[in-house]
Design a protein around this nucleic acid. Structure first.
Lengths: 201, 201
DNA sequence: GGCGCTTGTAAGTATTAAATCACTTACTAG
DNA sequence: CTAGTAAGTGATTTAATACTTACAAGCGCC
């Protein structure tokens, strides 16, 4: 270590966020201390507070990082798809791929879920989920419009089931402890989900 | 207070478990301290350790309580159903009903999910989920046998989506903070899920 | 080359947690 | 009535934790 003793706050913030996400892949995010983060970065614990005022600020920044990067992947998947149905499939697999690439991310989100409603971090998570649902509903409506899925499909329920399907896969991988099977399981679950929308496989 | 100052270990254990589940409905289970439990029960903190050796023993007992009572509801739902498809519907709604009746229960389970694989409490959760999946797979296979659902349905994926659908509803209610909508949302999601199995509504 | 700002360290503080311990009180059997 | 046992108290111990502070040292700028 000690290659780059001094760095800018900006790069240190990014490093703290990345370390938090990385450490969350194996341990419970709630139990990760500022000392843990500092040790993993090769600095002292007090140094963290040069870059974030409180630990809650770290958690908020982490949630925002997840939002930004997940949404980037989802939008990219959507935009490279020729139609709404292909977009749904691509978004599903992109989300699963993100969870596989960053196993700490869903753990962090689940951890924030537990917090009281007043917590600003949880409010951010609420906002993220709500926007996600909206995007899904719109895409589902577009797919209906293009006669790619059942005309009588319930968009709200379909959006809920989309998210639930992914969350179920993630929980399953959290239980087993390895993310390898998740992607292949995802294919089967996605197939079934599409059948619910009246898509022939 | 102070109606029944002294009670048996057995009844105190039950009271501790019930208090833990109740308090988990509003706060993060990981942040509930032995002092919180004791205060809610009207005893001193030290008294808890007359009835459980460690806090982890409390968590284990809580998980076992959830297992016992949830499985009871699921089996009851299954047994009062004339066929496998009706059983699936009844189990789905029974599980959602349980989550509504005991909002702390899913929070506790999600909390244990975060723990390292070596934790005995998490191992118990793993076991519970595995048995649940098996039960679902069997019921799904029986439904195929009876030609109540698509013959080419992937039972493993269908079991995963069943659990995911419920977990998605629970997460949604944890986000919004109220369980009222959950049951009516569940009806829509269940309908969609059944469509995936080729059931006409 | 000195100056000021930023980033770092090392030590320290206040708080909170689970667990323990000495002691007390209620109930029950002989 | 008395002795034993189980349940409860309240004070204490030990170990962490988030955050602070006094001081040191690098970096850009003139």
């Amino acid at each position: 270590m000690s290659i780059n003793p001094r760095q800018t706050t900006e790069s240190r913030q990014a490093e703290i966020i990345a370390t938090m996400v990385r450490l969350s892949a194996e341990r419970s995010p709630a139990e990760i201390t500022t000392t843990d983060i500092a040790k993993a970065m090769g600095v002292t614990q007090g140094a963290l507070f040069r870059h974030f005022a409180t630990k809650e600020a770290i958690r908020l920044a982490v949630v925002e990082w997840i939002d930004e990067h997940l949404m980037f992947e989802l939008l990219a998947a959507k935009e490279r798809s020729p139609d709404a149905l292909t977009a749904l499939k691509a978004m599903f697999m992109a989300h699963v791929g993100f969870a596989k690439a960053h196993p700490g991310a869903p753990r962090l989100i689940f951890g924030e879920l537990q917090q009281p409603a007043s917590s600003p971090v949880k409010q951010r998570v609420q906002q993220i989920m709500q926007r996600y649902r909206q995007t899904l509903s719109q895409t589902l409506a577009a797919a209906i419009e293009a006669k790619l899925i059942r005309a009588d499909a319930d968009c709200a329920a379909a959006a809920a089931l989309f998210l639930g399907a992914i969350q179920g896969l993630v929980i399953q991988s959290m239980l087993s402890g390895h993310t390898e099977q998740m992607v292949q399981q995802a294919v089967g679950v996605l197939d079934l989900y599409l059948a619910a929308l009246g898509v022939k496989s």
